[in-house]
Design a protein around this nucleic acid. Structure first.
Length: 727
DNA sequence: TTCCCGCGGATTTTT
DNA sequence: TCCGCGGGAA
C-alpha cells in the first residue's frame, strides 16, 4: 500500500490517510488537489476496503468528474468502478427522478435552463401585470434564484417579504413561477438543489437510505458551494461524519451565483472536530509567476492564512503590454502566439488567452483568424444554444415530457404550419381552465370543437405528428429519433429548400447533434432519450473544452478555473474590465475580482503575459481605460513592461490616481452635457452614485441614478443638487 | 397569420 | 454594436 502513496508529499499523504471524520483540505493553486482526491479514493478502496459504491465524489463540472473517474481507475488498474463521481446538479437530478413520487413530482421532469427560466418568468410577469420597465425580468429572476439557493421557498418568502419595491413583486411572482414550473413538470437549476434538500428534510427515511449508501463524501471546489449545497452535505454526512472538502478561499469566484465563501472560512466552526490540512507547495508555476500572483492576492483581507511556495526555477519575468486599443491589443497577443509557436516550438494547444467578458473574444478571434492561428473558444456561443439545436431538442423533450408547455410553444409553429398566437392563446386559456397541459391540453382543445375548420385541421395534423413520434420512442435509439424528428416534421426539408449558406450551417450543426446522440448511445449503453436530454441540460461551458486539440484556447477567467497551460495571456487588464466597473461600488465584489485575477495568473506554468488597452470600444462607444489597479501590486522585479511608453512604474506610485480611481474622466453625452450613462455623480442628500439612464434633454434632462447608499432615484438635473465626479 | 421595421436594452461572470 | 421583441400593416 505504501507504494501507492509514494508520489505524494507529506501533507498530501496525510490528507489521503485521514479517512474518518470531517476533513478540510486547504489546497492552494497548483498544489495537487486533484491528485489528493484521486489518491484518497483509491486509498479508501484499496487500503481501507471501502466498497466503491459507498463513495461519493462531487465535482464542479462534468468534465472534472469524468477526468477524476479516469484517474482513479488508472491508479487502481481497473476499467470500471462503481464510485459515484458527478456534479451537485447531476447528482440531485438523479435522486429527484428516483424519489419523484414522494415529492409529487413527475419522474419525467425536464430541466429548464436560464433562457427558458426567463421566458417563463416573463409570462408570469405579464400575467400579474408587473411592469418589465420598472422591474427587469433579469433582476426578478436573479432574486428568485438567490432565494432558492438560500432555501427560501415561495411560502416562506411570502410570509417575510417586504410589502414594497422589488421584493413585493417577487413575493407575487415567485409562487406563480413555481406553480407554472410544476404544472408542466419542469424544474430549474436551483430547484434541483432546493428540492433535494426539501426531500431529505421532510423524509428522514429517504435521507437515511442515502446516508447508508454514501458513507464517504468528498467535495471538490468547496469554496464555490452555496447555502443549498452546504445543507445537502450536512444532511448527507450527519451520520457518517465522513465529509472531506477540498478548496481554496482565494479561488472563490462564483459569489454572484450564490457561492458562499463562508462555507470554507467557517468549516472549522461547523465541524469542531475537523482535521485541517494545508497544501502549500505549488508544483505548477515558475517562482516568478507564483510571487507575482501571491503579491496580488495578498491585498485581500478576509483570507485563510496560507503561503504558497515552490522549488520550481524562477523562469522568465511576466510580460506586460499596454496597447492603444483593443484591436492593437489583439494583434500584439496574436504576434506573440505566433512567435512562441514558430521560434520556441510551443504547440498551439499549450497557449491560452483569458479575458473577463465574453464580448472581448470577438476582436481576438478576428486577429487569430487573419493570422491563420488555430483556436478554440470555450463557452462563448454554446453549441446547444443554437436555434436549430434548441428547436429539435424541444421536440425531443416533448416526447419525454408531454406536459412541457414551453417546448410545445417553441415548436408548435416551427417549421411554419399556420398555427399562430390566436390558437396558442386558446390553448393556454384551456390549459389554465382545465388544468391540463401540453399535449394533453392540445387534445382537449381538439375535442372541444371550438376551433375554426382550418385551425382544427392544422392542429390535428400536428398532434398526430407528435403522437406518431412518441410511439417510436421505445423502439428507436436517440440518434434515430433525432433523424425521425428532422424528417417527419419537415425541419430538414425546409432548411434544404432554403439553400443559403446559413441554412447549410444549420444542417451541419444538426448533423453534429446526431453524432453527439450516436456517441452518447455508444458510451451510455443505450441509456435512452431522457438521460440524453438530462446530460445536455447539465452540460457546462468547460465541458466543451478539448484539451488534446492543437489550438490556442480562448476563454473567460471563470471558465479557466481548474485548468493549467504552459503559456497564459490575460487580456483587458484595465480598470472597468478587471476589476469590472460594476465591482467598484462594493468592496466584496472588488475582492472577488482580485481573486479572479489571481485564478487567471495561477493557471500559467511557464510564461504569463498581461495586456491592456488604453482605449476600448464598449457597446460601440469609445472609452478611455486606465491599466488595472491589480498591476500595481506585482513586484517590479517580476514583470517587464514592453509598452511603447512604459506605464507600470508610474502605476506603482502611491499617489497615482489611476491606481485608485476607475474611469479616466467623467464621460460626456453626445449632446455635450456632463451626465453620460456610467458617470459617477455626487448628490447633496444621497451621496455617491452612478448614472444608469438618461431621459429628455436640455431643461428636461432626467437621470436615473443608482446611489451607493440610497438605491435608485430619478432626478431632474435642473433641480437636483447634483454634480459629476471627475474620475 | 406573417412579415417587417424600429426601438430599446444589454454585456460580468454560469451549474 | 447587435439582438430581440413588440407593434402595426399587408
Amino acid at each position: 500500500m505504501d507504494d501507492l502513496l509514494q508520489p505524494l508529499n507529506p501533507p498530501q499523504r496525510q490528507a489521503v490517510q485521514c479517512t474518518e471524520g470531517p476533513l478540510l483540505i486547504l489546497a492552494g493553486a497548483g498544489s495537487g488537489k486533484t491528485r489528493v482526491i484521486t489518491y484518497r479514493i483509491a486509498y479508501l478502496i484499496r487500503a481501507c476496503q471501502v466498497p466503491p459504491a459507498q463513495i461519493l465524489a462531487v465535482t464542479f463540472t462534468n468534465k472534472a468528474a469524468e477526468e477524476m473517474r479516469q484517474r482513479v481507475q488508472q491508479l487502481l488498474g481497473v476499467t470500471a468502478l462503481p464510485v459515484w463521481v458527478a456534479t451537485f446538479h447531476a447528482t440531485c437530478a438523479q435522486i429527484l427522478r428516483r424519489e419523484a413520487a414522494v415529492l409529487g413530482l413527475s419522474p419525467h421532469f425536464v430541466i429548464y435552463d436560464t433562457a427558458e427560466q426567463l421566458t417563463l418568468l416573463k409570462q408570469c410577469q405579464r400575467e400579474l401585470d408587473i411592469d418589465p420597465e420598472l422591474y427587469p425580468p433579469q433582476s426578478l429572476l436573479r432574486r428568485i434564484s438567490t432565494l432558492k439557493n438560500e432555501l427560501i421557498d415561495p411560502e416562506a418568502f411570502v410570509r417575510e417579504a417586504a410589502d414594497f419595491g422589488l421584493d413585493e413583486k417577487v413575493a407575487r411572482l415567485y409562487p406563480l413561477y413555481q406553480r407554472r414550473l410544476r404544472q408542466q413538470a419542469a424544474v430549474d437549476f436551483d430547484d434541483l438543489l432546493m428540492l433535494t434538500v426539501a426531500l431529505w428534510q421532510r423524509h428522514p427515511e429517504v435521507l437515511a437510505r442515502y446516508q447508508q449508501r454514501w458513507r464517504y463524501v468528498m467535495v471538490d471546489e468547496y469554496q464555490d458551494t452555496n447555502v443549498a449545497q452546504y445543507h445537502l452535505l450536512r444532511l448527507l454526512t450527519a451520520a457518517s461524519r465522513n465529509l472531506c472538502v477540498v478548496g481554496d478561499d482565494d479561488q472563490s469566484v462564483y459569489r454572484f451565483r450564490g457561492a458562499n465563501v463562508r462555507n470554507i472560512l467557517e468549516f472549522e466552526r461547523d465541524f469542531p472536530d475537523a482535521t485541517v490540512i494545508k497544501l502549500e507547495q505549488n508544483y505548477r508555476s515558475t517562482a516568478t509567476i507564483l510571487e507575482a500572483a501571491n503579491a496580488v492576492i495578498a491585498k485581500n483581507p478576509h483570507r485563510k492564512a496560507k503561503t504558497l511556495w515552490t522549488t520550481n526555477p524562477r523562469g522568465e519575468p511576466l510580460g506586460y503590454f499596454c496597447a492603444q486599443d483593443e484591436v492593437h491589443e489583439a494583434e500584439v497577443i496574436c504576434q506573440n502566439l505566433v512567435g512562441l509557436h514558430h521560434r520556441e516550438g510551443l504547440p498551439w494547444g499549450a497557449m491560452a488567452v483569458f479575458y473577463r467578458t465574453n464580448a472581448q473574444s470577438r476582436v481576438l478571434e478576428d486577429s487569430l483568424r487573419r493570422a491563420g492561428v488555430p483556436y478554440q473558444i470555450v463557452g462563448a456561443l454554446r453549441f446547444y444554444d443554437r436555434q436549430e439545436i434548441r428547436d429539435v431538442l424541444a421536440y425531443l423533450r416533448l416526447l419525454v415530457n408531454p406536459q412541457d408547455m414551453l417546448s410545445l410553444r417553441r415548436i408548435i409553429n416551427v417549421p411554419r404550419r399556420g398555427i399562430g398566437p390566436t390558437t396558442w392563446g386558446r390553448l393556454e386559456a384551456l390549459a389554465e381552465a382545465q388544468q391540463r397541459f401540453g399535449l394533453d391540453a392540445l387534445e382537449a382543445l381538439l375535442a372541444s370543437g371550438t376551433l375554426g375548420k382550418a385551425a382544427q385541421e392544422k392542429l390535428r395534423a400536428f398532434a398526430e405528428l407528435l403522437r406518431g413520434l412518441q410511439a417510436e420512442v421505445p423502439y428507436l435509439g436517440v440518434a434515430d429519433l433525432v433523424r425521425e424528428v428532422l424528417a417527419r416534421t419537415g425541419y430538414a426539408a425546409q432548411l434544404e429548400a432554403e439553400g443559403t449558406a446559413e441554412a447549410q450551417a444549420r444542417l451541419d450543426n444538426l448533423g453534429e447533434l446526431i453524432s453527439a446522440a450516436d456517441e452518447f448511445e455508444r458510451r451510455s449503453g443505450g441509456a435512452g432519450l431522457q438521460a440524453f436530454l438530462e446530460q445536455l441540460a447539465l452540460l457546462s461551458d468547460q465541458d466543451s473544452f478539448d484539451a488534446s486539440g492543437g489550438a490556442v484556447v480562448l476563454m473567460t477567467l471563470h471558465a479557466a478555473k481548474g485548468l493549467e497551460f504552459p503559456v497564459v495571456f490575460i487580456a483587458g487588464m484595465e480598470n472597468g474590465l478587471l476589476p469590472h466597473s460594476r465591482a467598484f461600488d462594493d468592496p466584496a465584489e472588488l475582492e472577488e475580482e482580485r481573486r479572479l485575477c489571481y485564478v487567471g495568473m495561477t493557471r500559467a506554468q511557464q510564461r504569463l503575459f498581461l495586456t491592456s488597452a488604453a482605449r476600448r470600444r464598449v457597446y460601440g462607444v469609445q472609452q478611455q481605460h486606465t491599466p488595472s489597479l491589480f498591476l500595481a501590486d506585482i513586484p517590479a522585479a517580476c514583470v517587464q513592461d514592453y509598452s511603447p511608453q512604459p506605464v507600470l512604474a508610474q502605476l506603482r506610485q502611491p499617489w497615482s490616481a489611476a491606481a485608485h480611481f476607475p474611469p479616466a474622466a467623467a464621460p460626456a453625452a453626445p449632446d455635450g452635457s456632463p451626465y453620460a450613462v456610467g458617470t459617477r455623480v455626487w448628490h447633496a442628500h444621497f451621496g455617491r452614485g452612478v448614472v444608469q439612464k438618461r431621459e429628455g434633454e436640455g431643461e428636461d434632462l432626467k437621470l436615473t441614478v443608482r446611489f451607493d447608499e440610497h438605491g435608485v432615484k430619478k432626478l431632474l438635473v435642473r433641480f437636483a443638487p447634483l454634480q459629476p465626479l471627475p474620475s
